[in-house]
Nucleic acid binder design. Structure first.
Length: 438
RNA sequence: GCCCUGGUAGUGUAGUGGCCCAUCAUGUGGCCCUGUCGAGGCUGCGACCCGGGUUCAAAUCCCGGCCGGGGCGCCA
């Protein structure tokens, strides 16, 4: 007999035979009758054991440890004595894998566990339906994003994660000891995306891990994260990139709302889809708003973490907007991003922007400098040796279209979409400054 | 890296000098119970992060270490 899921039982006739399997969530033993609650990916079903009918086997069955994997062949019986409306009368029950006692982490216990305990026992933690729902929704979000990119004729690419140079300063690189010369884990696919613009791909995207060896210890940083990057050619300005980003967000969140209802209900979360186009706010205006809001500055007037949160609330209150772009980042704030194009009419401003979601940076992007001589000049300004970027720079010498793109933190997207306190909740097995296992 | 905060049964907690051979819940063992779905009743089990110090007395105070959680810098 073919195994079916808990949710399939509803379709069966009263008295029909079936095979089910899952994890024994709990046993309610009332003496002469007992109930086994069994969980599979789709939900829960209940098996009824009547002592008078099954005799000696009763004692063995009610003593199967919680979270053991069991397989049941039985008959569906409709009844109004249980909340599900039906239960399973067993013909045979097989223990496939017995769980040890006690569990390091209860799945349905009435006590919460600390994050550290949960992540040490992540495979158990993920058995909770609310945790699994996060990853069902993450999958749906990624599906929605890929759906958008396919529709827009993007090519999905894979670029190397072992690289010779970073896109940003060297301090945040994880070193790889193997090549006998400097080798690192990629912080970003930035340079490769651009090389593919030089190759004529015109529209590419990648969803892949990126690595940053920073001493970040916050609820929105991890050492390894999933980065979504796209890059497009023949743009007129960074407005084209923001427009594409705006459509991408709208499309993917719509997809989540349509396809993910069941899981959003489990998490009791409502996802709001922004209207295209997403509002833009130049960096200098952000400063003005923050001044009006009475922010106290320490040092340079820049949008810092506190500023981001204040602006997020401001935009929510005044425009009912969860998303907004901060545009025209000053060149002095983007100095290390040597490939950022600056405004022709005012070189103190870049074409770079961030996309903010619920008061947190989600996306960073802009138009890249595609003119070889200017690019070289910008590298010199920060004393970067062109020799370590030779293969990248060569791309610009033989025909490079105007282009630009973005990087989006997938884990942050999931975190903010589902209002999760910590980015680690959106990652199966997070890697941070101290966690390497499991 | 800096600042704040914490570490007590498998899990989550109470206790902040003697009232503690440590509270409660959950779990787990045993017993009772034929409709549980946060079942119920009776009963047992199980813990003060590590190392120094102060004190008549330390889970509690001090110092150092190790390990969490949060904030900031920074960033996706």
């Amino acid at each position: 007999m073919k195994r079916i899921h808990s949710t399939d039982v509803i379709e069966l006739q009263d008295g029909e035979k079936c095979k089910l399997a899952g994890w024994l969530q709990e046993t309610k033993n009332l003496g002469g009758i007992a109930f086994l609650k069994v969980r599979d990916r789709e939900g829960i079903f209940q098996v009824v054991l009547v002592k008078k009918e099954i005799g000696e086997a009763f004692d063995d069955l009610v003593n199967i440890p919680r979270e053991s994997v069991i397989e049941i062949e039985g008959k569906k019986q409709e009844t109004d004595q249980t909340t599900l409306g039906y239960e399973i009368i067993p013909i045979s029950i097989k223990v496939e894998s017995k769980a040890e006692k006690p569990l390091p982490l209860g799945i349905v216990d009435k006590v919460n566990a600390d994050m550290d305990t949960r992540f040490d026992n992540r495979f158990l933690d993920l058995r909770k339906k609310e945790k699994m729902a996060i990853f069902e929704l993450r999958h749906i979000l990624l599906e929605g994003l890929r759906d958008f990119f396919s529709q827009e004729k993007f090519i999905e690419i894979n670029t190397p994660k072992i690289v010779a140079a970073g896109a940003e300063g060297g301090a945040t690189l994880f070193e790889v000891d193997y090549y006998g010369e400097g080798a690192y884990l990629a912080q970003s696919p930035q340079l490769f995306k651009q090389m593919l613009m030089g190759a004529g791909f015109e529209r590419v995207y990648e969803i892949a891990p990126a690595y940053r060896a920073e001493d970040f210890d916050t609820v929105r940083h991890t050492s390894e994260f999933t980065s979504l990057d796209f890059e497009i050619s023949f743009i007129d300005s960074s407005d084209d990139i923001m427009s594409m980003t705006s459509y991408m967000i709208e499309h993917s969140l719509n997809y989540v709302v349509e396809e993910g209802e069941r899981y959003l209900d489990i998490l009791d979360v409502e996802v709001t889809v922004p209207e295209h186009p997403i509002r833009k706010l130049p960096h200098r205006e952000c400063i003005e708003i923050l001044d009006d809001l009475g922010k106290e500055w320490e040092g340079e007037k820049e949008v810092d973490t506190e500023g981001e949160k204040m602006l997020g609330e401001y935009m929510k209150e005044n425009y009912d907007a969860e998303f907004f772009f901060i545009t025209e980042f000053p060149t002095k704030m983007k100095q290390s991003t040597f490939y950022a194009m600056r405004k022709d009419y005012d070189p103190s401003l870049t074409t770079y922007f961030d996309l903010e979601y619920k008061g947190q940076e989600l996306v960073s992007g802009g138009q890249r400098e595609h003119r070889y001589d200017i690019l070289m000049k910008q590298m010199e300004e920060i004393d970067l040796a062109p020799s370590s970027f030779r293969s990248y720079l060569d791309t610009f010498k033989y025909g490079m279209p105007p282009h630009g793109g973005i990087g989006l933190g997938v884990d942050r997207f999931v975190q903010k979409m589902l209002d999760l306190d910590n980015i680690r909740e959106a990652i199966l097995f997070p890697r941070d400054t101290s966690r390497l296992k499991p």
